[in-house]
Amino acid sequence: MKDNPLSNWPPIIDSDHIPRWVKMRDIFLTIGAWLIILATFHSLLWIIFEYFSDPIFELSTTATPQWSEIWQKVSRFFYIALGLVSWICFLAISRRKIINSTQYIKTFPPSVQMKELEADLGVSSADIERWHKLPSVEVFVNENNRVCKIIPSQKI
């Protein structure tokens, strides 16, 4: 990229300039966080491990979880999630042509409509055309936060 002060693209700023202790702190804290999560998951992980180890598809040392009780707790939310997923699938399939539209549409600048809107904003087309030609301007704003005056900048 010519004139580009950034030598690398994408312009990611990584942790090269960060003190070593900060990097180590972040890594150790994150490992700690994973261990906490794994510790809370340990019963579940153990059941999965046991289920798939020899004898396969059987739980020999752990008591079988109360699946019906768990399902009773979870089922309501499962059906809500299923309903939402079904709805978004239906919507996506029915709108797939619009979502993936690639056909070019020739649109003409709606000049009449634009002029009406400019008038609504309290600016004339002549003013707008003049502003379009100016490379540098000073902008004045009124108490209603509307642009009330644009003049060529004196700074250049």
Binding site: W131, H132, P135, V137, E138, V139, N145, V147, I150
Partner: peptide, 26 residues
Amino acid sequence: LRVAHLVENQGKSTALNAGLLMARAD
């Protein structure tokens, strides 16, 4: 490049509105 200097600080919305009035493109 074209430049618009707002005489006083007005906030991002007003700045963008001024830019829109200067913009030649649709």
